[in-house]
Design a binder for these strands. Structure first.
Lengths: 131, 131
DNA sequence: CTCCGTGCAAATACTTTGCAAAGCG
DNA sequence: CGCTTTGCAAAGTATTTGCACGGAG
């Protein structure tokens, strides 16, 4: 059987939705976004597909922020900044963990690190300027 | 009024419980731990107090891991390692973010970082040895 | 026909909350 | 007495799941 990527229209739309934004959305956002176009879209489908993308390595989980899991279609190594005022999530592309650093982590602690999740909390530029 | 720390017995016991371990427990664990001693302890009380400790800076949230929030009475800057096999959480005391680094972050992105949450995922020493 | 994906609603899991009663100084 | 803390149960929120239907090859 040939490789069938983005098999269904809805799955494809969900993937496009998370690719189209840098806002690191949660399931609810994706649902609201696509609902006008797919009037019979179900929230369960959004959850199922977001989970699948993560399993397939096509997306990553930014983590659970204020009780909701947020996703990112950008799977390249980077970190995130969460504004505790406006709840926005933005990317931090500064590289914190070099290969050597992770390697030394493995050696020092006897572990095998496969991924990491870095969240900075604070106040974002926009909120700082407003205050 | 004088400062009243550890006002109630149960609050105190909950605090002692999270201080007594390096396992980064969730509310359920604390509850199970104290239930034999305080037979009328309520899970709601555990949740309320853990939340309060975080607000008061007496504990920190390790983050939500597999749907449950985990806590740590060690509030000194450090990171955490989550084993994806046995779900254990351990401390990583390697300092990743120097004062200068955080400062440059603030300048480059125009933000004001107040805290950070670093989770490494992988396989822990014990699980590696078992496999 | 056979899979796979989906809607829908119910179920689940974790956490929060309202309120009356109990605790403490 | 006045304020804080708690038990209990109900409510709240986010996410997952079972099942029957529908579409694609």
């Amino acid at each position: 059987m040939a490789v069938r990527e983005n098999y269904s229209r809805k799955r494809n739309a969900i993937y496009q939705a998370i690719c189209s934004t840098k806002s690191h959305p949660n399931a609810e956002w994706v649902y609201e976004q696509l609902k006008p176009q797919f009037r019979d879209l179900s929230l369960g489908t959004v959850y199922r597909n977001l989970k699948k993308f993560c399993e397939d390595g096509k997306a990553i989980s930014v983590g659970v922020i204020n009780g909701q899991e947020h996703f990112d279609a950008d799977t390249t190594p980077h970190s995130h900044f969460v504004c505790d005022r406006c709840q926005s999530i933005s990317d931090i592309y500064k590289p914190f963990f070099s290969e050597e650093l992770l390697k030394s982590l493995n050696e020092e602690y006897g572990v095998s690190v496969t991924s990491n999740e870095v969240l900075f909390h604070g106040v974002c530029k926009e909120c700082l300027e407003r205050e």
